[in-house]
Design a protein around this nucleic acid. Sequence first.
DNA 1: TCATTGATCAACTGATTGGTTGATTAAGAG
DNA 2: CTCTTAATCAACCAATCAGTTGATCAATGA
Lengths: 131, 131
Amino acid sequence: MEHDAQVSDTADTLDRAFMALADPVRRAMVARLSRGDATVNELAEPFAITKQAVSKHIQVLEHAGLVTRSRDAQRRPVHLDAAALERLTAWIDQYRLIAESRFRQLDELLGARIPNQQKENTPAHKKEESK
Amino acid sequence: MEHDAQVSDTADTLDRAFMALADPVRRAMVARLSRGDATVNELAEPFAITKQAVSKHIQVLEHAGLVTRSRDAQRRPVHLDAAALERLTAWIDQYRLIAESRFRQLDELLGARIPNQQKENTPAHKKEESK
DNA sequence: TCATTGATCAACTGATTGGTTGATTAAGAG
DNA sequence: CTCTTAATCAACCAATCAGTTGATCAATGA
C-alpha cells in the first residue's frame, strides 16, 4: 500500500543494472566475463562463498540484463552483454555532460578565472524564492 | 567473522556509487542536479515522501561521492560532482571495451559471417577441463 | 539403471535498507 | 527572546538481501 509506480517504466531496468554492479563480487564477475564466457564454477573459484551464492549473483546479473546464458551439456556458460553496459554509460553520460556544460558556461562567465572558490553559493544559478 | 576484504581497496567507492544510482528517487535527483544545484526541499518536491527520507537519499549520494554540499544561510545546496560520474563510466567502459574487442576478434575469425549462433561454447576462449 | 558432475530450488537466518514519526539543531526575522 | 524555516538526528517498523545448509533437477558416462 505504498510507493505508487510513478517513477518510470524503464526504471526497473536501470534499478536492477546499477544494483547488480553495486556488489564487488558481481563486479568481479563482470570483469572476468569481459575476458570470456565462464561457468558458475569458474566464476565461483576466486571467492570464498558457496556455489549457491554465486548462482544467485549470476541470476541477479541475468535479471538485470547484463548477462545471458546458454547451454553446453551440463554447463551453463555465462555471457556478458556489452550492449547492456553501454546503456548504463549512456544514462550516466547524459547527465554528466549536462552538468559539465553548465560548469563550462560558468567558467566562461567568470572569464576563465578559477580562484580558490570553495563556497560557491549558486553563482550562475538564479535562485528562486517562490515561497 | 566473514568475507575477508580481498575484493579490492577501492571497492567501497564503487559499491556506494552504483548502489546510490540503483534507486529511482536518487537517479531523479541526479537528473535534477545536473540542471543546477538544489536544496533538500527543492529535491523533495517531486516525490511523495518526507523530507527526512529525502535527506537520507542525499546522504547516500554524498557518502558515495556523487554530490557535495555547501552552506547558504539555513540552506544546504546540493551540488552534483560530474567527475564522480565519469569515474563510473570509466569503470564500465573498461570492461565493455574488452568484451567488444573480443567479440570483434571472433567476428573476424568467422570471416564476418554471423550465422544464428546461439550456443557458442567459448569459441575464442580455450576451455580447460582440469578434472 | 546407477553414479557423477554442474547447477538450481527451497527454506531459513542475520544484516541492511527505505520509510515513517517525533524531537532537535542552526540560522535569520520579528 | 520568540517564531519560522531548513535540515538533521534518533528510534522504530516492514521489506528486502546476502549468505548458509540440505534436497533436487538435468545431462552425461559407466
